[in-house]
Simulated scan of single mutants.
Amino acid sequence: MRYLLLGTTEALGPDGTPLPLGGARLRALLAALALRGGRAVPVGELVDDVYGDEPPLDAPAALQALVARLRRILGREAVEATPGPGYRLAAAPEDVDLYVFERRAAEAGARLDAGDPETAAALLRDALGLFRGPALADLPGPAGVRPEAQRLAALRRRVEADLRRGAVDGLVPELTALTAAHPYDEGFHAQLIRALRAEGRPADALAAYETARRTLADTLGTDPGPELTALHRDLLNPTTPPPPPALAAPAAHPRETPD
């Protein structure tokens, strides 16, 4: 069995076929159990995760009925009763896409730190591809905040890997969209400036810095941090010329003519 939390909660059977989970409460229960990666969860915590601020009058009994429905779908052995009382999903972390993502992202980070951006970029693309939508979308409250922060961190690292391996094609439009969606993220602004510089566009890189500086000053009342400041200084006083933009290959070799 596999359990998917990076989007709408899903359960996949041994052959990869999605199982019919039904309503939102059932998906929330499965998400709450799978999020613990096979650890026991007390009834009180599950009630909070499933019902939020509006629990039913007899919440433990309602939860027990919900567990019975989930067992009919997954199999009775899939959800175990534990002392406390509580329940446990019979699943290992590698059966849950959230933990698969975390493991692959950590491995990619180690590869990047070791100077292997090619492998890091491939691993990070694979890890980010596990997201089908907002993480833990079926749980109330801020449950998805941490996975979303992890997703953005992995995205920054993937862009960093692409920059280090010189794969800048398509980075400028992607980073332009990311800086618009996350205007206070200095990391994305710095990567956009670096991508523009790598394309041989120093004037556009300076304009991107100015946009970032103005956004931080007008909205947060702060100055750019050390990374943006250093990039700006390098753009104003380049020590080495930026790489020229890639040239298109000629359509055909010119015909040789006698002198």
Rank of each mutant, 00 (worst) to 15 (best):
T9Q: 01
E10G: 01
A11V: 10
L12Q: 02
T17G: 07
P18M: 10
L19C: 03
L21T: 00
G22D: 03
G23A: 13
A24C: 07
R25T: 03
R27L: 00
L29A: 04
L30W: 00
A31S: 09
L33T: 03
L35D: 08
R36N: 07
G38F: 08
G38V: 05
V41G: 00
P42V: 09
V43W: 02
E45W: 04
E45L: 06
D49W: 01
V50C: 06
P56S: 10
P60D: 08
A61M: 10
A68E: 15
R71C: 03
R71I: 01
I73C: 10
E77V: 14
V79D: 03
G86D: 13
L89P: 02
A91R: 00
P93Y: 10
D95Q: 09
L98C: 02
L98S: 00
F101H: 06
R103N: 07
R103I: 12
R104H: 07
R104Q: 13
E107A: 09
A108E: 03
A110K: 11
A114T: 10
A121L: 03
A122P: 04
R125S: 13
D126T: 04
A127G: 02
L130R: 15
A137K: 02
A137P: 04
G144T: 03
G144F: 01
G144S: 13
P147K: 06
L152M: 04
A154R: 08
A154Y: 11
A154F: 04
R156K: 10
R156D: 02
R156E: 12
V159M: 05
E160Y: 01
A161K: 05
D162F: 09
L163F: 07
R165I: 00
G166S: 04
V168W: 07
G170Y: 15
G170H: 09
G170R: 10
P173Y: 07
P173Q: 13
L175G: 08
T179Q: 07
A181M: 07
A181Q: 14
G187V: 01
L192I: 11
A195W: 01
G200P: 04
A205H: 06
L206R: 14
E210Q: 11
L220Q: 13
D223C: 04
P224E: 14
E227S: 13
L228Q: 02
A230R: 14
H232P: 02
R233T: 14
L236E: 12
L236C: 05
P238N: 11
P242A: 08
P244T: 14
P244H: 06
L247D: 11
P250G: 03
P258A: 13
